[in-house]
């Protein structure tokens, strides 16, 4: 009786595990051939032989503060924005690695550095890191997740060998969107064909008075930036740090590294340029991109 029960239980367990893994593999295939997330958007929409002049890496501030299209129009360059919201510096380094490991080349990497990453970065997995998961079989991506996962259930670590664990755990993030890409493989999740995203022109404060920024002393000393810079240098790419505008704050920054820094934290003084205290709206983005393009010009003239 017991033996029969256990055999039946094992049989059904194996059947379910097999189908679940097949579904997960299908999901992985669909995501990799789609443009829904930046990692696959890059691989599927650009040719590796095409060299970029620059690529932008950052969090939501990288997405919404810089328009690569505006810069390219001004400087006649070719750039791409690979920023992803809700990510930190470690995820951004991962994206940079993904860029080069996918065969792309670029002269410059503009890193939109956020305040929380100025001095150190957390070892946690960021909210939107799952977007890199379709490429989990790649060693640098697997390593990133394996070193950061904690707890009993480790979907990324296990997911390399048992994809069902990863796709079941991140079902609303990976599995269901993959089904969506079945019908719309070219759909991009909140970014345009250059990887940019724009907040609408809603403004934070209707009173359009000029802001008087508060000055704040900051130190850039995150050791991960050194790693970042070394990695890029090995790939023939120069790192440029960019601090995007904040509403009503001027960061007085002491940069401990020999990495070029463009500090535009207080360059926009009108409330009407901001969507919220840390994000620009469309209007602000155009202005900020224009200022950035001016700063970048000397680099591209070299």
């Amino acid at each position: 009786m017991m033996k029969k029960f256990l055999i039946q239980l094992s049989k059904y367990f194996l059947i379910i595990a097999l189908i679940a893994n097949l579904l997960a593999l299908m999901s992985n295939f669909l995501l990799k051939r789609s443009s829904i997330f930046k990692a696959s958007f890059l691989v599927n929409n650009f040719e590796p032989e095409q060299a970029f002049d620059y690529f932008i890496i950052g969090s939501s501030r990288g997405l919404t503060s810089i328009g690569s299209e505006e810069i390219d129009q001004k400087l006649t360059t070719k750039g791409i924005n690979l920023s992803q919201d809700d990510t930190g510096l470690p995820s951004q380094l991962l994206m940079a690695k993904h860029f080069f490991e996918s065969g792309f080349q670029s002269s410059y990497c503009i890193l939109v550095l956020d305040e929380p990453d100025f001095e150190h970065s957390s070892m946690q997995i960021n909210d939107n890191d799952y977007r890199m998961a379709p490429y989990l079989q790649r060693e640098y991506i697997y390593d990133y997740f394996r070193k950061r996962e904690r707890g009993i259930i480790r979907p990324y670590t296990l997911g390399k060998y048992v994809p069902a664990v990863l796709y079941a755990y991140y079902n609303t993030e990976l599995f269901i969107p993959s089904l969506f890409t079945l019908f719309r493989p070219n759909y991009r999740h909140r970014f345009d064909k250059y990887g940019n995203y724009t907040y609408p022109d809603n403004q934070l404060n209707t009173q359009n008075e000029l802001l008087k920024p508060i000055q704040i002393q900051k130190n850039i000393s995150n050791p991960l930036l050194h790693t970042f810079e070394e990695y890029l240098r090995a790939k023939g790419c120069q790192l440029i740090l960019y601090v995007a505008p904040y509403q009503g704050r001027e960061l007085i920054i002491q940069n401990e590294f020999d990495i070029p820094l463009i500090n535009h934290s207080s360059i926009l003084l009108e409330n009407s340029d901001f969507y919220d205290p840390i994000h620009l709206n469309n209007k602000g983005k155009i202005v900020a991109s224009s200022f950035l393009a001016e700063e970048l010009q000397p680099f591209f003239l070299k």
């Binding site: 059904y12 189908i19 679940a20 079941a168 079902n171 269901i176």
Partner: peptide
Amino acid sequence: SNFQLVLLSLFILFMAAFK
């Protein structure tokens, strides 16, 4: 039925709020 249970298990796996 057994078939329905397999479907249900898959549904749980891919639709449950594990997080």
